[in-house]
Design a protein around this nucleic acid. Structure first.
Lengths: 335, 335
DNA sequence: TTGTAGGCGTTATCAG
DNA sequence: CTGATAACGCCTACAA
């Protein structure tokens, strides 16, 4: 059943059928009804491929993320999908993993599928070594690139993010103001936003101007499972590194920190304050619940899609939008 | 840049270019190289829409889920996407919410996009009132329908699931065997798999043959946030309903149960045993960590895609595949 | 081994 | 307001 069949049955030309379907040009009420009736009657649906070929778009945008099962990313995908759908766009999902080579591969795959835009979810898409971001700029020559929670300069690259620097700065500063002295910064990823957070921590610590504190020891990069991370902290503790608070770059790290505290009978938040990041579902699962930095994911995603639709309409849109984070105070911290 | 441009530059016909691209028919090494060089040189990529139109497929399968941010569903999506990609298929994601009307809408949307198959993630897609499942059977006339964790009879509908009945039966039975008497069953969704779980619980309880226990009171349906669920349990407790164990249909409910225990100073698992379901990431976030029923999501997803690929190849494939769950024992239970 | 030509199902541009 | 007809870019018999 195609447009010819419909046109024959309705006794009109295919042009008229097309007009009725798309409702752009004027068609007399009478013929319109006739066509509509036939369409209804034989359950005709326009062929999306043919339409795609003619219009050179299937109204689809590609979403790239490292791992859709990560709670933070999963939420982002949800918000993005909803918003795209609202605007009549489909979402093509790609889980790339964390390797740049893979990301490049998926990028050209999506490009070859001719999606109308590509959304990069997560700051891990912005490499610190900028030459590795070239493939993104290259892609931006074909379609608009939207980055969720990461910033990259370049034409046709639109970034929406939260001010991670400030958030970590404020969180660390608050701890200092409340008497915590030796604050550990625990992180598991090096990326654009990762570096911002790190800088926020360092800047806050430097306001104290302590000569005795070797900050390198307090910058703890560790990538592993919940248990491995807990063990890592325990080994630091046993080795005698003194710390009374831990600021983390992710809620899951904070969960590990909490497990570490339990294992070593440190009372939280009295002897050890812990601050998570992302304010994801898991922040509510522990006891006490995690104090966590909320990076306004829904607002960020919403803004990104709104910007994209503006770009589609040919409007001038800001290349960068920055939201403020909010510290959600719960049981693992004392301010 | 299209196939004509390439053919001109290479000094061959478009048919030859097409043959080189698709590598099906024989082309002399010399011309092949020539064409490949031109393609490389001008960065030509075949137009996916045109190809789709000709072949009547874009090698895309639709994924429908209620909410991609749910940890269980998010994991399923991840496994599915990876497996599809492995087989050179793209994943089109739809988050439908929990209303049947919406699901129907999305189903016809995907159908109109002419995806090669549609995957329904989550038992919530199978309604207890079977007439509401008619739209799925209808869709199955056009494309294979794969159901993850739900069962629905029908031609061209392939289901892969875990034996929820047995899992809950065994879990409940184990608690009974270990001296727990008043076991509450807490659930938040009515669906195919929801009913299976419920039956498993009831069957296990009936083996005890207790005249004094009004089982209706122990069947607790409650749908709400973590906190609301906790409060619901507290109100049951205050009202005097005696219970020493809680079996739940979802890890998040078990988290609420744990919070309830903390709030009321009940020691877990001594005074109260708690069993979760799905063995998701959040089962590891609490203290003690949740004993949870693992429903082998990765295996289920893998099987579903393998089955789908068989269907695509025209092979006869089983309409239903059932895996066994596994009870992962952790700190919230004593067996 | 290679080329020619028709078909896939739309949309859009002109005439009328 | 409506109808012919030419794109859109590829695949694939069929011919050579």
């Amino acid at each position: 059943m195609n447009i010819y069949d419909v046109s024959k049955r309705a006794g009109v030309s295919i042009a008229t059928v097309s007009r009725v379907i798309n409702g752009n040009s004027y068609v007399s009420e009478k013929t319109k009804k006739k066509v509509l009736d036939v369409i209804e009657e034989c359950g005709y649906t326009p062929n999306a491929f043919a339409r795609g070929l003619g219009l050179n778009t299937m109204k689809t945008v590609g979403i790239m993320c490292a791992d859709s099962s990560d709670p933070y990313i999963a939420s982002a995908i949800y918000y993005i999908e909803q918003e795209l759908r609202q605007n009549n766009y489909d979402a093509l999902l790609c889980c790339t993993g964390y390797e740049v080579e893979e990301k490049e591969k998926y990028m050209s795959l999506l490009l070859s599928k001719r999606t109308d835009a590509i959304i990069l979810v997560g700051s891990n898409f912005v490499e610190v070594d900028d030459s590795k971001n070239q493939y993104i700029r290259e892609a931006a020559k074909s379609v608009p690139i939207m980055i969720i929670n990461g910033a990259l300069n370049g034409e046709n690259i639109y970034c929406t993010l939260c001010d991670d620097y400030h958030a970590v700065y404020e969180a660390t500063k608050s701890l200092l103001n409340n008497g915590y002295k030796n604050i550990l910064y625990l992180y598991n990823a090096v990326s654009y936003s990762g570096n911002k957070k790190l800088s926020g921590y360092i800047a806050a610590m430097e306001t104290e101007n302590r000569a005795d504190l070797k900050i390198e020891e307090y910058l703890q990069f560790f990538h592993g499972s919940l248990m491995e991370t807990k063990d890592h902290l325990t080994s630091l503790y046993k080795r005698g590194l003194p710390f009374d608070a831990i600021v983390t770059s992710d809620d899951s790290l904070a969960i590990s920190a909490l497990k570490f505290a339990k294992e070593n009978n440190l009372s939280v938040p009295k002897e050890l304050s812990i601050i998570g990041y992302n304010n994801s579902i898991i922040a509510l699962c522990s006891e006490p619940e995690l104090t966590s930095i909320d990076n306004k994911l829904e607002a960020v995603c919403y803004n990104s899609i709104t910007t994209l639709m503006g770009v589609f309409r040919g409007q001038a849109m800001p290349l960068r939008t920055v939201f403020s984070c909010e510290i959600i105070k719960r049981g693992t911290s004392r301010f």
